[in-house]
Simulated scan of single mutants.
Amino acid sequence: MSGPLTPRGLREFCLEQNAAVEDFPFGPDVSVFKVAGKVFALSALAAVPLAVSLKCDPDEAVRLRADYPAIVPGYHLNKRHWNTVTVGELPARMVRELIEDSYDLVVAGLPKERRLRLDRP
């Protein structure tokens, strides 16, 4: 994939993560992407500009916010653990890596039995 992520591309990439599902607990306008019932990404896909909130290691979250104006503390989330990323202001590859990092953090926090079930086909 090249060029900036579109709403469709963002949604598809989130759903490409192993066992990821899309849910709408906050209404039809906010896509919530989960793995094993735990949130790893949230986005109002129709919003302009397109943004996505992602889980992040607290120290890394602070560094990213300092280095990139397009990354701010998570909107309506625990600001220590969540960043909101304005998608079009960053390279698509970086946004994909941040999504993968968020997914990996959530999976790492799952009980071992649930993590092992994710690894099975």
Rank of each mutant, 00 (worst) to 15 (best):
E16T: 09
A36G: 09
P111N: 05
P49H: 12
E12L: 12
D59Q: 14
F26L: 09
G88V: 10
L10N: 07
G37E: 08
E113D: 11
D29H: 06
S31Q: 02
L98V: 11
R120T: 15
R115I: 10
S102M: 08
P7M: 08
A66N: 04
L15E: 03
A41F: 03
L45R: 08
M1H: 12
A70H: 11
V30P: 00
A70Q: 13
V52K: 00
S43C: 11
H76D: 00
P91Q: 06
M1G: 15
E113S: 06
A61G: 09
E12R: 05
P49N: 04
A41S: 06
A66L: 07
D119S: 13
K38I: 04
P121R: 15
D23R: 15
L42V: 08
E100W: 08
R11Q: 09
R93L: 14
L45Y: 12
Q17Y: 02
P28W: 07
S31W: 01
V95G: 00
D119K: 15
S53H: 02
I71N: 03
S102F: 04
A19W: 01
P69A: 14
W82Y: 10
P73A: 10
D67C: 13
L90N: 10
Q17L: 12
G37D: 02
G74W: 02
M94Q: 15
I71H: 05
F13M: 03
H76F: 06
T86K: 13
D57A: 05
K34V: 01
D67E: 15
P49A: 14
S102T: 00
D57R: 07
F26V: 06
L10Q: 12
T86P: 09
L42N: 02
R93M: 12
E100G: 14
L98N: 06
R115S: 06
K55N: 10
V107S: 00
R11K: 06
L98C: 09
A61F: 03
P91N: 01
F40R: 04
K79E: 13
L10T: 04
V21I: 05
G9T: 08
K38M: 02
P28R: 14
G74N: 08
I71C: 01
H76T: 00
G88H: 02
F26M: 00
R115V: 10
F13Y: 13
L15T: 04
C56E: 09
S2K: 08
A41G: 06
R80H: 01
M94S: 13
Y103Q: 08
E100V: 13
G37T: 09
V32A: 07
V48A: 15
R80M: 06
A70L: 12
S53W: 09
A19T: 12
G109K: 00
A46N: 15
E89D: 15
R11P: 07
K79W: 09
E22W: 11
G27N: 01
G88N: 12
S102N: 07
V106S: 02
E12H: 04
A51I: 09
D29Q: 10
P28C: 04
L42Y: 11
N18K: 14
L118I: 03
Y68H: 11
L90Y: 02
A36M: 03
A36W: 03
L77V: 07
Q17K: 14
P49D: 14
A41E: 02
L50K: 03
C56H: 06
I99C: 07
T84N: 01
C14H: 05
L42G: 06
I99L: 08
Y75T: 04
Y68N: 11
L64T: 06
L54R: 07
R96K: 15
V95D: 03
L90A: 10
L110P: 09
G9R: 14
P25S: 04
